[in-house]
Amino acid sequence: MLEIGLVILGFLGMEIFSWAFHKYLMHGVLWSIHKTHHQKQLGHFELNDLFSVFFGSIAIILIVFGSGDFDYRFWIGCGITLYGLVYFILHDILIHRRAIKWKRPADYYLDGITRAHRAHHQSNQRDDSVSFGLLLVPRRYFKQRKDKTRTYINNH
């Protein structure tokens, strides 16, 4: 039971950490890397993908060092890895349609986080963005739209 709690802690901790990291560092001193995500891309990859490599490396290190005794590091690393998988599916596949061009299912929650992410991308400037979270976004993005058409953030 403790293990499940540690996985949840790693997962939720990543949402909180990544919100702050995104708002204060990626839209701050690391903007030169992150701005590639706010610009139209010609290829499949962007410099901003280095952040995924960085976070993935932290998860791998925790899992490797915690795997001997399956201690807290292992389980927190699993939570971070699970967050990375959810991030990839929601952000890269369903919102940006980067890796796989799946049709996004009609879903109240997915529509809300997509609207929040679209609001974040309305600006390609460092200081004009809103809504920095992935899973936890302001409630106003979940209000029902009168227009039922779907839009994707397809800047790639």
Rank of each mutant, 00 (worst) to 15 (best):
L12K: 05
R104W: 00
T149V: 14
R98E: 00
G13S: 04
K35Y: 02
L82G: 03
V137H: 08
R145K: 15
R104A: 04
I61W: 03
D107T: 01
D147W: 05
R140H: 15
L30D: 02
R145Y: 06
I93F: 02
R150M: 08
H91C: 06
D107E: 09
D71W: 00
R145A: 15
F11W: 06
F142A: 10
I153V: 13
L110T: 02
Q125V: 02
K23P: 10
G28E: 01
H120A: 05
F70L: 13
G77Y: 01
H27G: 00
F17C: 07
D49I: 00
F142P: 09
I93A: 06
N155H: 11
H38R: 00
H156C: 11
R140F: 05
Q144P: 15
D127N: 14
L135Y: 07
V29I: 13
G5F: 13
W102Q: 07
I61G: 01
I89A: 05
G68N: 11
W19A: 10
K35I: 05
K101P: 02
L85Q: 06
R140P: 10
P105A: 04
V7K: 05
H34N: 03
S129Y: 00
W31F: 02
K143A: 15
T36H: 08
A106D: 14
A59R: 04
R73W: 01
I63K: 08
T149W: 09
H96C: 01
R73N: 07
A106V: 14
N124V: 04
H34Y: 00
F54R: 06
L30H: 01
Y87D: 13
T81H: 09
Y141C: 11
M26F: 01
I95M: 09
Y152K: 06
T149Y: 11
R97Y: 02
N154D: 04
H22V: 09
H156L: 14
I95A: 08
A119W: 02
G84I: 04
S67N: 12
K143H: 10
Y24R: 12
F88H: 10
Y109G: 01
I100K: 03
S129P: 07
L90I: 15
S32Q: 08
L136P: 13
K143V: 13
Y83W: 09
K35D: 05
H156T: 12
R126K: 12
G10P: 06
L85K: 04
K101D: 05
D92Y: 03
F55E: 06
F54I: 15
Y87E: 08
H22I: 07
R98G: 05
R139G: 12
T149N: 14
C78F: 01
H121E: 04
Y141P: 15
